[in-house]
């Protein structure tokens, strides 16, 4: 079974993403910030990471940069899910190693489409 880590400080967003991914057959873990996401990855590297940008303790971009430096950290497919919609910031996320980017708010169709684009479903 493929695994996914959702890093988002909003329980509502985590629940929406969890439902979609569980329906697609993923084993899902959730964390509310980047530091806990990093710890979760060090323990068990997921196949896919859905990542918020603005989170307490460690933001999504800092997490992503640290993740990609970890042994095996190049493996997970990372999709940013953020309210940031500035093209410069989206470009920065992609240049830092994100595979895709979803702007909030989004619906199930958008998220499913992005997962399909990166070959995660």
């Amino acid at each position: 079974m493929k695994s996914c880590l959702i890093a988002d400080d909003s329980p509502v967003v985590r629940l929406m993403i969890r439902r979609l991914l569980e329906a697609a057959g993923y084993h899902v873990r959730e964390v509310p910030d980047g530091a806990q996401a990093l710890a979760a990855c060090q323990k068990d590297m997921p196949d896919v990471i859905l990542l918020d940008w603005r989170m307490p303790v460690m933001n999504g971009l800092e997490f992503l940069i640290r993740l990609r430096r970890l042994p095996g950290g190049g493996g997970p497919c990372v999709i940013f899910c953020s309210v940031e919609s500035d093209p410069g910031m989206i470009g920065r996320a992609l240049a830092s190693g994100a595979n895709e980017y979803v702007m909030k708010p989004f619906d199930r169709e958008i998220l499913a489409g992005k997962l399909s684009l990166v070959g995660a479903v």
Partner: peptide
């Protein structure tokens, strides 16, 4: 919403 359906980032 439309812009996010089908295009890559």
């Amino acid at each position: 919403f439309e812009i996010q359906k089908g295009l890559s980032a």
